[in-house]
Design a protein around this nucleic acid. Sequence first.
DNA 1: CTACAGTCTACAGCGACTGTAGAGACAAGA
DNA 2: TCTTGTCTCTACAGTCGCTGTAGACTGTAG
Lengths: 149, 149
Amino acid sequence: MRGKPMTIGRISKAAGVKVTTIRYYESIGLMGTPDRSESGQRLYGGDAVERLSFIRHARDLGFSVDSIRDLIALQTTPQADCAAIDAAARRQLANVGERIARLRALEGELERMVRSCEGGAVATCAVLASLADHDQCASDDHGPRDIAL
Amino acid sequence: MRGKPMTIGRISKAAGVKVTTIRYYESIGLMGTPDRSESGQRLYGGDAVERLSFIRHARDLGFSVDSIRDLIALQTTPQADCAAIDAAARRQLANVGERIARLRALEGELERMVRSCEGGAVATCAVLASLADHDQCASDDHGPRDIAL
DNA sequence: CTACAGTCTACAGCGACTGTAGAGACAAGA
DNA sequence: TCTTGTCTCTACAGTCGCTGTAGACTGTAG
Ligand SMILES: [Zn+2]
Ligand SMILES: [Zn+2]
Ligand SMILES: [Zn+2]
Ligand SMILES: [Zn+2]
């Protein structure tokens, strides 16, 4: 660990990850146990900032913690083939594509609902009617279950 | 409560909502406390099926439980103006639109990452390099935080 | 009567954090 | 040196929208 050791607050600011989140990442094995000062405070080197940035960027791109753990593990053998890493990225891409498709279906139905109501009493609200009965909307727009937005 | 009372299993099948989920909806006040048989089993009328369908359709469209609670409350005064309901639907529509936009940004960045790697060793993997450094990707694609996918 | 399916309550778990309480540690100013 | 204020520590509860489990009881068909 070269360079001056940094406290958790410093790497938190440096990487843009909250202190509590860093401790959480440590607890789930994404971050590895850091050195401690005599009084027990965590001490990090610059590599910790790099790893945090990596984790955060991957999270921002929607990778699960599990995937990120895998990606980190794959980095430990730099001479290996990167096919597994590329595959993980492609899986994530597909995942995002599916979510977009599902959300677009919702968007379409919501648009129709909103357009169809011309105001008036709750009793005759077209939005409410659409919500009460999916068959009434253009049929096969959104999936039946497992939205997992 | 007209019609033969139905058990929780029956309305579960009728509405396509799991038994445990129905009890959960009751516990959080979406469903109201049903009558009970002598032995303590819940007994529902057909209106329960309607309400469950309503809830499920709204959930499928991405409405939060809180919003649905509001929507249900608004239905209790059918002579009122439906503006609040329509506004809720428009809010949800905007919400979905934002999520789509964010996901499209992710999609773009992931596509670039995947395209840029031509295979080889982990040490030189372009996907990994992109993940390690957001500045390296086309800069302003995905937001800094709060993905809330 | 005997299976077996359905129902009951109460609580733990998911993912990915966030927030809290209560205690100890450290840097800077008076 | 004392004090003040900011960090840091651990451990645990809460978020959202469910899902699954355990262990007991009830209802129904053969
Ligand atoms: Zn309306
Ligand atoms: Zn629908
Ligand atoms: Zn690669
Ligand atoms: Zn990026």
